[in-house]
Simulated assay, not measured.
Amino acid sequence: MADDVTSARVDSWIWAVRVVKTRSQATAACRAGHVKVNGERAKAAQSVRIGDEVRVRDSGFDRILVVRRLLVKRVSATVAAESFTDLTPPPPPREEIALAPMRDRGAGRPTKRERRDLEKLRGRDSDLD
C-alpha cells in the first residue's frame, strides 16, 4: 500500500485507519485539540511515524493507538485494524458510571417540587421542618 512512505499527516492517518468517518472530521478534531501525538497536541498537518502514540478523544474517552503501518488512503477495515495497536483501556462497567439527573432540553425551569426532588437525589436536601 504505502510501504515506501516514511511519515503521514495525522489527520489523514486517523481517517485512513477509520477512527473518524471523514477527512474533514479528522481535521476538525485536530483543530479542537482532540488529537495528541506522543502526548503533545497535534495540528492536522503534523506527521506521524511508525511507533508514535496517537490519542484521539471520542465521546469523552481517549482512544490510544500506536502506529504500526503508515497509510494515506482509506483502506478496508481489516487492513486498517492491522495498521495500529489499540492500547485503549476497556470502558468502565455501566454500574460504575454515575447517572446524573438530567432534564429534557427545552423543558424550562424546574418547578419547586422538581427542584426539591433533584436536591434530595443529590443528597443536599434540607430537613428544616
Rank of each mutant, 00 (worst) to 15 (best):
S47W: 07
V79E: 10
R41Y: 14
F61C: 05
G60Y: 01
Q46K: 15
V56H: 15
V67N: 01
V56I: 15
R68S: 06
V75M: 04
D58F: 12
V48R: 11
R68E: 08
I50C: 06
T78A: 14
S47V: 10
R68Q: 10
V67H: 05
L71A: 06
F61P: 00
R63F: 04
I64T: 09
V66S: 05
R63E: 04
L71F: 07
E53C: 05
A44S: 14
D62V: 04
Q46L: 13
A80R: 12
G51V: 06
R41L: 15
R41C: 04
R74S: 00
R63I: 12
I64A: 02
A77G: 02
V72S: 09
A44W: 07
A45E: 11
K73S: 06
R74A: 01
K43W: 13
Q46I: 11
A44V: 09
L70Q: 03
S76E: 08
V67M: 04
G51T: 09
E53S: 05
A80D: 05
R55A: 13
L65A: 01
D62Q: 09
A42F: 15
L70F: 10
E40N: 09
A42I: 12
V66W: 00
R63V: 13
S76R: 06
A77E: 06
R69M: 06
F61E: 08
R63N: 04
R49C: 07
G60Q: 03
